[in-house]
Design a protein around this nucleic acid. Structure first.
Lengths: 110, 110
DNA sequence: TTGACATGAAACCATTCGGTTTCGTATGAT
DNA sequence: ATCATACGAAACCGAATGGTTTCATGTCAA
């Protein structure tokens, strides 16, 4: 039986501040591990593991180039997050929704 | 010295699927724990703990009403998430940004 | 060919996480 | 008063998380 690999999703991937920072850094273009890990206090290996989580979530791609591995940002999985958020937006953007909420509160208190 | 309480943020709060489901349920209006935990396979206590995490992130409020605790959805903290996402949207919406990305890749490969 | 560089894999560690069960305590109903 | 209801706190547990150090491997440079 194969070991059940962790397989992270986009929600878990962005839960960690270091990983969010990595994504920001990568929007400036493809970069090798050494360049990325130079920006962090933790070890190179730790950064490498964060990048793996991001890759499992589809947020970065790896590409070997000589002896370095170049990481690149892939925005696509963020669409799921955007959709998820979209559902909730009505509850703070939409004045009608706010009104509806107030009415429900009145109901509950009645 | 005070023990450093967990204090969760919105990114961690939405990382768990059960908590995301709780938020969805709560958009239908304020509900007591018993009603919410009825929707889950896990114990009432476990649901209660998830709700605490959501509360620490500011995504729900608690209100004692008699012997029940009523939980209500608070959308405000999602604004941070929306802002965070907003930064990255240029990388999949904006054709100019995509072009810029391609140019950078060319540079790297040169 | 020898050596430095860039990296991933592995083993390990402490802490956090998501869940359980048990217990204590208000509150509301009889 | 008594008893059931609704809940939180606490103790506990296994697995996942975020980090480390050590080691092996492939690649470029001298």
């Amino acid at each position: 039986m194969g070991q059940a690999l962790p397989q992270h999703d986009v929600y878990q991937a962005i839960a960690d501040p270091s990983r969010r920072r990595l994504l920001r850094l990568l929007t400036q273009g493809e970069q090798p591990l050494s360049a990325l890990s130079g920006q962090f206090d933790m070890s190179r290996t730790a950064v490498s593991k964060h990048l793996r989580v991001l890759r499992e979530a589809g947020l970065v791609t790896e590409r070997r180039a000589g002896r370095e591995t170049r990481y690149a940002f892939r925005p696509e999985p963020l669409a799921e997050l955007k959709d998820w958020l979209g559902y909730f937006e009505q509850f703070w953007d939409n004045k009608l929704a706010i009104l509806k909420h107030l009415v429900e509160e009145q109901d509950e208190n009645a």
